[in-house]
Nucleic acid binder design. Sequence first.
DNA 1: TTAATATATGAGTATAATCGAATATATGCA
DNA 2: TGCATATATTCGATTATACTCATATATTAA
Lengths: 133, 133
Amino acid sequence: MIEIFKALGDENRLRILNILKNYELCVCELEVILEISQSNASRHLAKLKNVGIITASKDGQWVHYQLSKKFAEKNKPLLEYLEAGFQSNEIFENDLNRYVIYKDSEYNCQTITNDKDLVTKYIDLKSGGIDNE
Amino acid sequence: MIEIFKALGDENRLRILNILKNYELCVCELEVILEISQSNASRHLAKLKNVGIITASKDGQWVHYQLSKKFAEKNKPLLEYLEAGFQSNEIFENDLNRYVIYKDSEYNCQTITNDKDLVTKYIDLKSGGIDNE
DNA sequence: TTAATATATGAGTATAATCGAATATATGCA
DNA sequence: TGCATATATTCGATTATACTCATATATTAA
């Protein structure tokens, strides 16, 4: 339990989990949605995975992360608490909004590879200006 | 939510909360039950109090700490998760056992003041030897 | 096989958390 | 008032955590 709380006591990891709670993403997508560096994203994902909160599935050179069904099943009250916390916080709502914009667009991992800035700017624009404003 | 997780991501604070979840104790009692220093106990209690998980009530020179009813009411799923975690862990079970031994004894805060070692040794003995063994 | 790419990991640094020891504050009592 | 006591806080040292930049690993595709 302590390790779980430690893993959840970090803003970036909570932001990641907020997305993965509902969707399955690869690392490069999380980089763009949350605007964090590749190594940072990878490291936080590793931490969440190490304590069993999320799982990874490899798809070629891409790695998709998702909420662990086993964990969610075994820890329903915690998931419920997280959901309530996510819903009452602007940061998490904004991140989710950014992801939905991306998901509903024509862009994908390949687009991000080709022109990461393009995708980032598209999301920024559609989500109503620069992030964190 | 982040602050809550940070507050819960520490073994000593979880051990404190494990006791306060069911009982109301003053600082000197927590020192003896958990075998932590006075300044450490006070510090951790302050942290739990600052994020609203516990409350304090002053009784003369003593300060009693208890789980915040408001917090528990507003965060039932979290409390449920904690309870499950506490019950499946030997450390927390042992701490609770130590408190019950103390509570059912003739000792109290005054006894602890007069001879802290006596109370500690009584609990150690009754709980089946030295703590953490 | 070689080049390109997605992700993971290592090294170094900055920041934050924890702890023990000492001190400050506040209350109770003689 | 002056002393003893319960708790809170400060200081300094140590350890842990998070971040950036650089590099390693593994996979794809030419």
